[in-house]
């Protein structure tokens, strides 16, 4: 069963690598931010699977930090400039 979890983590990792293409080519910054968000969520899933298959329970805390990081990055990205776009 740990082998199965590791195989699923590998599939998720390949999915993340494919999603990275959107970060590189994405036409607008909003596309890149969305791709980074998907990257963070898939990263959480990979970390949860690795925590069980490698038997390192502390990786759950890293997954919590990933969730916080996504919120901070999106908030920093969508913050409005003081002068120009108040409305």
């Amino acid at each position: 069963m740990p082998d199965f979890l590791l195989a699923m983590a590998l599939v998720l990792l390949l999915t993340m690598s494919a999603g990275l293409a959107r970060v590189v080519i994405g036409p607008t910054p909003a596309d890149r931010m969305m791709a980074a968000q998907l990257l963070g969520t898939s990263g959480i899933a990979v970390l949860l699977l690795l925590a069980l298959s490698l038997d390192v329970p502390a990786l759950l805390d890293v997954a919590l930090i990933f969730a916080l990081l996504a919120a901070v990055a999106v908030a920093a990205f969508t913050r409005r400039r003081a002068g120009r776009d108040q409305a």
């Binding site: 990979v46 690795l50 890293v62 990933f66 990081l69 990055a73």
Partner: peptide, 29 residues
């Protein structure tokens, strides 16, 4: 994010935590 996954794979959860919080989160913002 990716480097933090690598630290997690190397079984160093503390370094992965610091990398994700400081390197990608605060530094990125």
């Amino acid at each position: 994010l990716w480097l933090s996954l690598i630290w997690a794979r190397l079984q160093a959860p503390d370094v992965a935590l610091a990398e994700a919080a400081i390197g990608a989160g605060l530094g990125g913002a």
